[in-house]
């Protein structure tokens, strides 16, 4: 069974990678398994300067999911390059840097900063964080702004750029086509859906930020639908994500049109989940009649 997938900048031995924000920079999970098992790692978002993030509570469990409003807490791009990437470089896996910002200039600065290191293989351009007022979400909901920020980050980057799309839009295909036209090498989708939970005891929103991003199995059908639609409308590859918990979920994302699959929330329930899914994937693929991952990509569009 061949699990390998070749994407711009990414020579993946398997299609599985932890999603940004759920895996920090890998250190914590490396006590559970060898990170060289992973197809890639998408590291936590980087901004120009250190960001402290939102007040607590920052997370709340919901049915088959969770809300988070961390607020892009990170030590800043220079510190990530100096202190975090060297640790990850000891593993035989691809590293995708998540680039965030509040202005086009900040996105450009962060993307440019990553040119100084050879330790990343691609950029995930985060134009869809719902938890920071100026966290780029406006870039992800307006096709013209999405085009502009993608074009300018591409000019500043020496690695392929995957644009992470927000599901909080009325027409995700329109945004996907705009960033493809701007030169995006790929897409990653979907980011979290905005949501809210009310604390019955306090009679007010539970999260300090009030609004948070909904992730987990609860959003999987939305992710599958959006990937299915976008796959038909663009020619660049898609890294799919949104509620993956089992190898069957991975197959569903591949069939919808994803070429690789990121796992987020499930890491919190089971820190071994990425490794367990990689180990189980050959049997799952074979039980549905596939002899490789590549064979399954976009398989739901053949009818």
């Amino acid at each position: 069974m061949s699990l390998d997938v070749q994407l711009p900048g990414l020579n993946l031995k398997n299609p599985i990678m932890p999603a940004s924000g759920c895996f920090s920079f890998g250190r914590e999970y490396s006590q559970f398994y060898d990170l060289s098992e992973l197809g890639a790692v998408i590291i936590k978002a980087a901004t120009k300067h250190q960001r402290l993030g939102n007040k607590t509570p920052r997370v709340a469990e919901t049915k088959s999911g969770m809300l988070n409003a961390i607020g892009l807490q990170n030590p800043g791009v220079s510190s990530i390059i100096a202190d975090e990437l060297p640790f990850l470089s000891q593993f035989q896996t691809s590293v995708i840097a998540n680039v965030a910002g509040s202005t086009v200039e900040e996105y450009e600065h962060v993307a440019r900063s990553f040119k100084d290191t050879s330790l990343i293989h691609a950029i995930e351009l985060n134009i869809s964080c719902p938890n920071v007022k100026e966290g780029g979400v406006q870039f992800g909901t307006d096709p013209e702004l999405a085009f502009e920020v993608t074009r300018r980050v591409k000019e500043q980057s020496n690695v392929p750029v995957y644009v992470k799309l927000s599901p909080n839009v009325s027409d995700i295909v329109e945004i996907a086509q705009a960033v493809e036209k701007a030169g995006a090498d790929g897409l990653s989708m979907i980011n979290t859906l905005t949501g809210m939970k009310i604390d019955l005891h306090k009679k007010q929103p539970l999260l300090a930020n009030q609004v948070g991003g909904l992730s987990g199995p609860a959003i999987k059908p939305v992710a599958i639908r959006m990937i299915y639609q976008v796959y038909q409308a663009v020619d660049i590859p898609i890294i799919g994500m949104g509620g993956v918990l089992t190898p069957e979920d991975v197959l569903e994302f591949l069939l919808a049109g994803a070429s690789a699959v990121a796992i987020g929330t499930a890491n919190f329930k089971n820190p071994m989940i990425c490794k367990e899914i990689i180990d189980a994937l050959p049997e799952t693929l074979s039980s549905y009649g596939f002899s490789s991952v590549k064979e399954a990509i976009g398989g739901a569009h053949n009818g």
Binding site: R27, Q50, G53, T56, V59, Q73, F268, P271
Partner: peptide
């Protein structure tokens, strides 16, 4: 504090340091 991963990876359960310059 409300926790996510419980292993230090998700930054959910933070508390400000003494001079509130970092978590």
């Amino acid at each position: 504090e409300r926790m996510g991963c419980g292993i230090g990876a998700c930054y959910a359960c933070v508390v400000p340091n003494r001079d509130e310059t970092a978590y």
